[in-house]
Design a protein around this nucleic acid. Structure first.
Lengths: 223, 223, 223, 223
DNA sequence: AATGAATGAGTATTCATTCAT
DNA sequence: TATGAATGAATACTCATTCAT
């Protein structure tokens, strides 16, 4: 048996974790990167940190992603993909009043996106938009526009069914969404520092926001 | 005109170098730094860039600010100082219905802060909160808390005067403010990239938001 | 032979770059740093120079030592470690007259420390003591005090055996050591500049010093 | 009265110290520089510090000395000049035994040079010799050589008068001087850091050294 | 595929020196 | 003369990226 084989044999038995799940690597790296990018921002996250958190070496990271920038883009794309198209299907089967529908939509959005780690990428996008305009556009097209459309359809339903006043859709949509976005930004910026004394309970906040919105949208009761 | 004259003419108008303006320098540097930090973020802004934009050399920057970090903090403090306590006085003399008062407050906030360059520091704070928790707390104490109090007083006035329903103040306050914050974030992140086709007119957006809020807050008309 | 071949031939022999020698690196860097620090002083030695002399790049230096200051400290510790406790053991078995013992001690000290490159760190410590008081204390504790003790024991032996007069140990110790320290300082400062015409031969100088010391210490012959 | 005169008149009454002793400036700067160079070394001393300690502005320093290097050289030259030629005259009239003469010489040297601030430049020279070889040579020629000659003449006197043994002058001279140099180095390096517990009283040390030297030099008493 | 030692371009910061006032 | 604001060359240190193993 040649010496070279012997040398290669040593790490083989000492590293049982390395052999399995080669195709899992990119996912583990993306997850580690998501954590760190969200926590520290793009520039303050070092490539090696990501690698270490994913349990691999620095070199391996660059085996899967050609650069830190591409890693960042992949993190964003990966996590945006999850968000898109969820929730739309669910609403199709909703039969109750549109006010309840809108409230439900907001609550679901928080439960399925806002409350998850993935919401950190919304914060990332907004923080790094000027340095990664391409990503900002991607986010706009893949998340903002579809989300906008979803809300538009709900509002239109309320108007069509005579429940809501005939409001300006464009600005009402944003008035509906803005507090949700705010909640995500808050969670990933000031909340961790200034939590004590000014805590915002997301569910209660959304409930209050939804109540105000629906009341503001509903046609006034006829006497 | 000989070439030598042309060459000499260039530095003549472009180089009033080595001026003595100790008084003005800090302000010029802070302004240049605000522009760049808002535009590119903290990490992506190079100290020398700030100096050059302020029309001085690298060394001069460090003559006035001991480090990039202190420059950043100074930018934040400088611009927050302006914001704080503005607007509060104006409301004291307001005599009309609280719904109009609330609408007016929001519109003035935009006109005096949101629409100015200084609003970029709200975006900065939120983007860099995890890297500068000390600043985040400063912002929270100096801006968020006073702003919150201002809105609370207006809402309380509406309730006390029997105009508004007896809502949960804590969450209503944030429901009022969230779209304003959203507007600032939007302006400094996605708007510059994805402006075409999805423009938000701040005044109209605030008007719509205020209308919805006030309608949601007003007691229902008694038949 | 075409020019292109010649050009290619140069890097071929001059660049076995990117070798992997993690074990050897710290030692090579410490040696290079010792040379340069001794030759030029702490401040006048640039980190990159050290790296280049060790045959690596700037980055590699900081891979092994977190800062120039730590590199300096490591150089000092590394070279002091060798010195400490050497020589002490040898004297234990010495059986002759204490005068010879003292002479032997001084000669050995020169041969094993003074004459080597490592003696440069004594000069370093003394030159940089005010900038690195921590190191000065380290040197004092690890080198000066043990050395002092060694000499003390020898002198005490001479007194106990009735060979030496009952001198004040504290000051005699320093009188014994001072010319040795002087020799080291001389070698690393004026000697390289002003060698011609005023050369000091260390062995002869120590012999003369030892002779004078021993004569001064010995009890006067009884008639 | 023209405006320019008025302007000039203002500092004239506000700065009473500035007008007097223009010719004292270089001296004050040299003194401040001596203090700082001795205390912190050449590189660690900033030009502005020197100026501030001398009570002038940075610009003024460069008005009198074209560069930091020249300032350093001037400091050395200035203080060496004081040292040279002192003491020689005094010895000419000494009439007692050469042993006492030698002891006296050493004690005087300490009192007039070693104990003063100026002795710091010996430490400076030795510390910076490799970076300022020109200064090292200057020091060698102006201080070491004359000092050596002085000691040589005393030793020669002792031999000529039959008091001292016929020792090797070259090495004995250095054996006499080395502890004095050592004392100066000690005072300006380790003593400030490690004073506690290992203090060397210079007068006592010199006394002990002189006693040992003289005993070592004296011809053995004839029975 | 995986490693981690090595690289070097890039950046904040210092400080001797200049010069308009 | 004297000032001190301004300069910019110099330097320690970082970190994304490469590549021999």
């Amino acid at each position: 048996m040649p010496l070279s084989k012997l040398i290669n044999a040593i790490p083989a038995c000492a590293a049982p974790r390395r052999e399995r799940r080669k195709e899992a690597r990119p996912g583990e790296l993306l997850e580690a990167a998501l954590d760190l990018f969200v926590e520290k921002g793009y520039a303050a996250t070092r490539a090696e940190e990501v690698a270490v958190r994913a349990g691999v070496s620095k070199g391996t990271l660059f085996l899967y992603f050609p650069s830190k920038e591409e890693l960042f883009k992949a993190v964003v794309r990966e996590n945006l993909a999850r968000t898109v198209t969820e929730g739309a299907s669910e609403l199709a089967s909703f039969a109750g009043p549109t006010g309840e529908m809108l409230t439900h939509l907001m609550q679901q959005w928080w439960a399925r996106y806002g409350a998850t780690k993935a919401s950190g990428i919304s914060k990332l996008i907004i923080s790094e938009a000027s340095n990664f305009p391409e990503l900002a556009r991607f986010y706009h097209d893949e998340v903002v526009t579809p989300g906008t459309e979803l809300v538009r359809r709900v509002l239109q339903r309320g108007i069509d069914r005579g429940e809501f006043r005939d409001v300006d859709l464009h600005y009402t949509i944003h008035a509906v969404m803005a507090p949700l976005i705010f909640l995500v930004m808050w969670k990933h910026s000031l909340a961790p520092c200034c939590g004590a004394g000014n805590t915002i309970d997301p569910e209660k906040f959304i409930a209050q926001h939804a109540d105000l919105m629906v009341r503001g949208l509903l046609k006034e009761k006829q006497p």
